[in-house]
């Protein structure tokens, strides 16, 4: 099912010249994600250290768990001292915190945001809802398992987890990146068709390109 604003159309310039517009191509640029293999040896280790010590979080509150992220900025928890910072744009961030349940409508935006992030990117799934649906397991509108739609690096259980649990989860993510196992983006590129099939199964009005950068 496509929408009007994504269909090809022809507009006319003031001189009467026809201009063909294909919004999906012109505005979003399709294509497929590519696998970027990590370099070998000490350079990659150093890069991984830098990545793990400078985690920029995408400030996108997807569910009720977004409430648990705010205290991390306060003097009581102060996550900045561990190198976490909040960025307002997916382009610059490297960690996507899925904070709690995801409705189908939100999932669509989440996928777009995730795909706009640049390659070494990590997903932290927060709360029981992302693991097995939590208290919304029988809802008609919230997904049950996040790992069928996005590659998840770290799960943090709880409903909701306390900010301390979040810090512990981020710590786990750090260790994972330092060991070189934070390759979620490549996993996504490898199993792209499977992820896309799952996403399209539940997002019925698919009016975005298959992959936007």
């Amino acid at each position: 099912m496509s929408k009007e604003h994504t269909e090809k159309r022809i507009v006319y310039s003031p001189d009467g010249e026809p201009i063909e517009i294909d919004p999906i191509k012109d505005y979003f640029e399709g294509g497929r994600p590519e696998i970027r293999n990590p370099r070998n040896g000490i350079i990659e280790k150093f890069a991984n250290w830098a990545r793990s010590e400078s985690l920029w979080i995408l400030g996108f509150g997807t569910g009720c768990g977004a409430i648990e992220m705010r205290p991390l900025m306060t003097p009581r928890f102060d996550a900045y001292r561990f190198g976490y910072q909040w960025r307002p744009t997916p382009r610059q961030s490297s960690v996507f915190v899925i904070s709690g349940y995801l409705s189908v409508k939100t999932l669509k935006r989440v996928i777009r945001s995730y795909e706009q992030m640049q390659n070494p990117k990590f997903v932290v799934a927060l709360g029981s809802c992302t693991i097995n649906g939590g208290m919304y397991y029988d809802s008609y509108n919230t997904i049950n398992r996040l790992d069928h739609y996005l590659p998840v690096d770290v799960y943090i259980t709880g409903c909701m987890p306390r900010p301390e649990a979040l810090l512990a989860g981020f710590d786990h993510l750090k260790r994972k990146i330092k060991e070189g196992r934070g390759e979620g983006a490549n996993k996504y590129a490898e199993n792209f068709d499977w992820y896309k099939a799952n996403q399209k199964k539940i997002i019925k009005d698919w009016d975005i390109p298959d992959y936007n950068w």
């Binding site: 590519e34 970027r36 150093f46 890069a47 830098a50 640049q118 070494p120």
Partner: peptide
């Protein structure tokens, strides 16, 4: 660290 991290990103558009 932030600068090194940004330069170590693998993709750019």
């Amino acid at each position: 660290i932030d600068i090194i991290k940004n330069y170590a990103k693998r993709t750019k558009i």
